[in-house]
């Protein structure tokens, strides 16, 4: 369906416009973009599993919208990255193995119940919001353009998660308990988001220093948790290592499902 003529849509940077522009990413920038793309891609794949299973039809669409926004970010980052090696976004998405994915481990964590998904999405969206805001000032114009478009979308994702955090936290005894359990489950993976990104070395002015995002994250997320009648978890951090290709037990099965069709029928189109 391409009937829309809205200028704000057609002017925005997409994977297609990036591919057409033919800008070739420098090797180091491409490696950094792969990490960013993998974060968005893996979380989009996770959220996609909610379609037809969300608590309400309306929420199916809401989570689907968020997943598609994130898939759009992933496609842009991976398209740009793939230009460095004469590849395509699909080569990177479908034909890399687990240890070649560089997403932070938060994004591969299972959906759990709806509350756990909201907890993961809250952390992810606030993190992306700060990251893309900073990245929109990057010296690399393509990364800056992708981030500038993404910020507008992620702003809404933050709002969606905060609204549900409040409603589940302040809802019933059971919803409060489940929301707390969801936060407890994802919290060990928060610290990794702000730890050193080995893919951003030697990219001063281009990459965002993850540690610089922690203060803004805390300023948004911690009071929101308290306002929702919940407790900020104190669980110790997981070992991390996603940016070096080290993953939890959950990424492998996710990739198997995501990649099976493309690998069974290489170069198929539909």
């Amino acid at each position: 369906m391409t009937h829309t003529s809205n200028r704000t849509i057609s002017d925005a940077v997409t994977a297609e416009t990036i591919a057409t522009a033919g800008e070739v990413a420098p090797e180091a920038v491409a490696r950094y973009a792969v990490g960013l793309g993998d974060d968005a891609l893996i979380l989009a794949q996770r959220l996609g599993a909610w379609i037809a299973h969300a608590p309400e039809l309306e929420e199916d669409v809401a989570l689907g919208n968020i997943a598609l926004d994130q898939l759009g970010h992933a496609r842009s980052f991976l398209t740009y990255a793939s230009s460095a090696w004469g590849k395509t976004e699909d080569d990177l998405a479908y034909f890399r193995d687990e240890s070649e994915f560089f997403n932070r481990q938060l994004f591969e964590q299972p959906n759990g119940d709806f509350a756990q998904t909201i907890a993961r999405q809250l952390v992810a969206s606030v993190y992306f919001d700060g990251l893309y805001r900073a990245l929109s000032l990057s010296a690399d114009p393509t990364l800056a353009a992708i981030a500038a478009k993404a910020v507008k979308e992620v702003d809404y994702h933050v709002d969606h998660s905060v609204q549900w955090l409040l409603r589940l936290g302040l809802g019933t005894e059971i919803s409060n308990e489940r929301m707390q359990r969801g936060l407890d489950a994802v919290w060990p993976f928060v610290a990794e988001l702000f730890s050193v990104d080995p893919l951003s070395e030697n990219l001063a002015g281009i990459a965002v220093d993850p540690a610089s995002l922690q203060a803004d994250f805390d300023r948004v997320v911690l009071p929101a948790i308290v306002d929702a009648g919940l407790t900020v978890p104190t669980a110790p951090a997981a070992r991390g290592g996603g940016r070096s290709g080290v993953h939890t037990e959950y990424l492998g099965p996710l990739l198997a499902e995501m990649q099976v069709l493309a690998r069974a029928h290489p170069e198929a189109t539909w």
Partner: peptide, 15 residues
């Protein structure tokens, strides 16, 4: 509040 957001998600997908 959630109704406005759900309406945004359901009915403004194509601007």
């Amino acid at each position: 509040t959630m109704a406005v957001r759900n309406a945004r998600d359901l009915y403004t997908r194509r601007a």
